[in-house]
Write a protein that binds this DNA or RNA. Structure first.
Length: 248
DNA sequence: CCTTGTTTAAAACGAT
DNA sequence: ATCGTTTTAAACAAGG
């Protein structure tokens, strides 16, 4: 009756749901986000049960990633080549589990439609940043910038000026060390990849970029600790800089 | 071509 | 029995 320790399930099925296993893997990672293959690896590494029937449970796991709002898909930044995106936990899903035990979940974590739309816009904007700043120099773009099928502008509302005063779930986070200072690293290790002068940047609505940027810390509850880390990784220290670069 | 991701449908399961 | 969740299955698009 000693409760089996983490790794001692042997060939028995561990009592964790796929959501729990995935959360476990993500939390365990240094950056709190992982590509799919690493989530697989985490699970098979410590739960031998999942070394069999991989097609079955991996399909299920992917289903969970897509289906549940508690997981968000963050586009891979181009200086880290690889296959899929990164998967992270939505910050508001932090207390998804009762005491953090991973064995008991609260109610299903479901985003409000509006919040979900915002999130999708954020991520779409991130993807666009990727394409714009890291697109290979394309001579054809100079001739006809209009023909830029690569850039997908989210169909969203213009700036959602009417920011509804947080009708969403008010959940109080104990403490979050998520300061602006932590975002603006004093030392930029590498200069961001500067688009070549001849490369005409496809137009992006500034609101897209700015909202994408500042929402990360003006609205602490909203979205994307991981994404904010991405902005930093791009070497983009301020919204102004982001504007400047995006309008060149 | 295989991995990654999305989506629908239904079975299985557990709590009330 | 009902309700909500979890698991499984399967079809399909997209991208490297």
């Amino acid at each position: 009756m000693p409760r089996p320790s983490r790794d001692s399930y042997g060939d028995q099925k561990p009592p964790y749901s796929y959501i729990s296993l995935t959360a476990m893997a993500i939390w365990n990672s240094p950056e709190k986000m992982l590509p799919l293959s690493e989530i697989y690896k985490f699970i098979t590494d410590r739960f031998p049960y999942y070394r069999k029937n991989t097609q079955r449970w991996q399909n299920s796991l992917r289903h969970n990633l897509s289906f549940n709002d508690c997981f968000i898909k963050i586009p891979r930044q181009p200086d880290r080549p690889g296959k899929g995106a990164y998967w992270a936990l939505h910050p508001a899903a932090f207390d998804m589990f009762v005491n953090g035990s991973l064995l008991r979940r609260r109610k299903r974590f479901k985003l409000l439609k509006s919040d979900k739309e915002i999130l999708e816009n954020e991520l779409a904007a991130l993807t666009n940043i990727n394409r714009i700043f890291f697109a290979p120099p394309n001579p054809a773009a100079d001739i006809n910038p209009a023909a830029h099928p690569s850039v997908v502008v989210p169909q969203a509302s213009p700036p959602n000026i009417t920011k509804t005063p947080d009708t969403s779930v008010t959940c109080i986070r104990p403490k979050r060390s998520f300061t602006i200072e932590s975002l603006i690293s004093p030392d930029k290790p590498i200069t961001p990849v500067v688009p070549s002068a001849t490369h005409v940047v496809p137009h992006v609505h500034p609101w897209m970029v700015s909202s994408c940027y500042d929402l990360a810390f003006t609205n602490p509850m909203a979205l994307m600790q991981p994404a904010a880390a991405h902005y930093e990784a791009y070497g983009l220290a301020s919204a102004e800089e982001l504007f400047r670069v995006s309008q060149l």
